[in-house]
Design a protein around this nucleic acid. Sequence first.
DNA 1: GTCTATAGTGCGATAGAC
DNA 2: GTCTATCGCACTATAGAC
Lengths: 226, 226
Amino acid sequence: MKFSDFKKHQSDYVEDICRNIFREYSQSIKIKKEELAVRNLVNIYNAALKLSSEKGFAAMSLRDLCRETGLSMGALYSYFSTKEDLLNIIQEQGQKFIAGIMIEYINAVDTVVEKLRIAIRIHLYLSEIMPQWYIFFFMEARHMVKAEQKKAIASELATEQIFIDILEMGRQQKLFAVDNIILTASVIKPMLQDWYLKRWKYTRRQISVDEYADFLIQFIEKALRR
Amino acid sequence: MKFSDFKKHQSDYVEDICRNIFREYSQSIKIKKEELAVRNLVNIYNAALKLSSEKGFAAMSLRDLCRETGLSMGALYSYFSTKEDLLNIIQEQGQKFIAGIMIEYINAVDTVVEKLRIAIRIHLYLSEIMPQWYIFFFMEARHMVKAEQKKAIASELATEQIFIDILEMGRQQKLFAVDNIILTASVIKPMLQDWYLKRWKYTRRQISVDEYADFLIQFIEKALRR
DNA sequence: GTCTATAGTGCGATAGAC
DNA sequence: GTCTATCGCACTATAGAC
């Protein structure tokens, strides 16, 4: 699979996420007409992610958000109840969406080698489609309150667990030589994260997400070789 | 070399950095007695790094800093001129200090294999000694003004260049098989950064910095094998 | 050299008109 | 459902007493 194949099978993910937000948080959203609400939620969450991936969530003021969305302060507060709510909703709904897609693709292939390759690709491709979300999870998790931080940690460990399981299967089938599965899974994640955390570097060097994915797969497979 | 060997050869690095700050920024520091000034600078910079690695620099108020240092608002402003100054000084002086140590250790060994190993170790060991500084560079660079951001980018690329040079030498001496030197150097950095960015994970799993260093060296060397 | 007091600004949040 | 106006508070920064 290449990035272009992946991309054309994805519908408008922001709308999917926002429709879910509308349904799950109906108590704190005052607007009742679904189509209008979802349209505005898309506007608000896109703006919030754009601004906070530029300057950080703490430094983004609700007045910045008014300017970016074209909505007034009063209108904004019809779509969430506090600024901190916004932080938590992005974290929870975003992670949930991403986890769903990852699992779906990994379950669709059979062999261990294919699972490892597709896990690497989908993680990179998703972060290419929705980079602000990934940057948000990474940068803002440490500023959340304890309860939300625990959820962020759980998400991080869940992604890692996907790789631990794959490596374990590979070892059992004598496909990989892995001394330390946990440490190996631990270092795969940061290599995937580098793609969105230092995107400027890869843009500057004109490296595409497919080139990066191909490189990572061969680099990791070589390190796993028996 | 092990971490304990490295640690005992390091003097009080914060004091070294702060003494340098006192000398280079004498115009914006109103206090003239060096010993007093350095003592207070150590207090201030330690506190600022602690607070901003906890909640982020933007979210750290100068009132927080007063509480943490035990100094008053007025006193603080005798040691720097604006809050943003503090950000820039940490970035510049910290990066300068770290770059100096890295170069020193790499130049002290002769062979390419030793240089690769020592570069990995010293990066990890330094980030173990002064994690708040590394976290600060990583998390706050994107919130700096353009001019300071360029310096942060230059530092990132300089570290990477160290690895590019080592890999290039290794290839010329036919010690390493590297298809793509730039991408290989690119992915080494994030594996080093994971040590301080996800320190909680390694603490929880009781993995020491030496274990992590040993693992990384063997993982990378395996991926470079001919 | 350090303190307290305060000026001036911009923040998150809400009430009430339309 | 969206707007404007405004409240109360916390912020950075400074002036002047000690």
